[in-house]
């Protein structure tokens, strides 16, 4: 079966820094794929290149077999993206953002209205009808971002740090939505540095370290008998195991 997302040899260099170094990854259809790594490991850069937001120096990315860079129109219609920290049309309300994007995605006006209604209700954003996105809290921004990713019912979701700054109640809601999406045949790639979350949600996982894939496979293949956190620290942690303390902090 064609992978939902196939990354081969993606490379990106910023000046002297090789941010992503020939990464190969395959996300099988129907899988919940976790991408873990330290800050600056290259997760966001990899995902940006995979969905066509950042031009790679080399390599390719295919969404359900369609190349993101040579056939962007077809590839991008099949994916919903939640980038980390990018702006939105800031002077619109949540409902207006969804209406605008839905029309941009070529959906019918009535379909857009109905889906926007449901998404705002499920994500509990319908209480902020008059609030512009620029006035949203960080957690609300994540939620409206997720709504825009889901709006056109894509078959693949690429989510960069979807749970950051989201309160526990909303997080539970989002988890339910995402699990339902996978159960319905959808595929998800999410990046995170919270190991417990990835362990709880994902069935596949890849560990990225210094722009390379340190380990990849099903969750059980990667972590073995240990917890994902222990495996992760062993894979990417410094060899120096002594925990550094701040002597001046203890009285």
């Amino acid at each position: 079966m064609t992978p939902a997302l196939e990354i081969s040899g993606l490379t990106k260099r910023f000046g002297d820094n090789l941010a992503v170094d020939h990464i190969d990854l395959g996300v099988p259809q129907g899988s919940f794929f976790g991408l873990v790594g330290q800050n600056g490991a290259g997760k966001t850069t990899t995902l940006s290149m995979a969905v066509g937001l950042l031009r790679p120096d080399g390599g390719s990315a295919r969404i359900f077999g369609t190349d993101v860079w040579s056939a962007p129109e077809r590839a991008k219609a099949m994916v919903g993206v939640l980038p980390d920290g990018l702006a939105m049309p800031e002077r619109l309300t949540g409902r207006e953002v969804l209406t605008y994007l839905g029309l941009l995605r070529g959906l019918d006006k009535d379909v857009v209205r109905q889906r926007a209604e449901e998404l705002l209700a499920v994500l509990e954003l319908d209480g902020a009808e008059k609030t512009l996105v620029i006035e949203y809290s960080t957690g609300m921004r994540k939620k409206i971002g997720l709504a825009t990713a889901l709006l056109h019912a894509p078959r693949l979701l690429v989510l960069d740090e979807p749970f950051e700054a989201v309160d526990p109640v909303s997080a539970a809601t989002i988890k339910t939505i995402l699990r339902g999406f996978v159960a319905g045949g959808g595929s998800i790639v999410l990046s995170s540095h919270v190991m417990a979350l990835v362990e709880q949600l994902c069935d596949h996982v890849a560990v990225i370290d210094k722009g390379r894939v340190a380990a990849a496979g099903t969750l059980d293949e990667v972590r073995g008998a240990r917890s994902l956190e222990d495996t992760f620290v062993e894979l990417v942690g410094d060899q120096d195991t002594g925990v550094k303390e701040l002597s001046w902090l203890s009285h």
Binding site: V51, L53, K76, P83, G85, L86, M88, E90, L104, R105
Partner: peptide
């Protein structure tokens, strides 16, 4: 960076 939405809807 709201431009990303334009990039995602070629």
């Amino acid at each position: 960076t709201a431009l990303w939405l334009t990039l995602m809807t070629p």
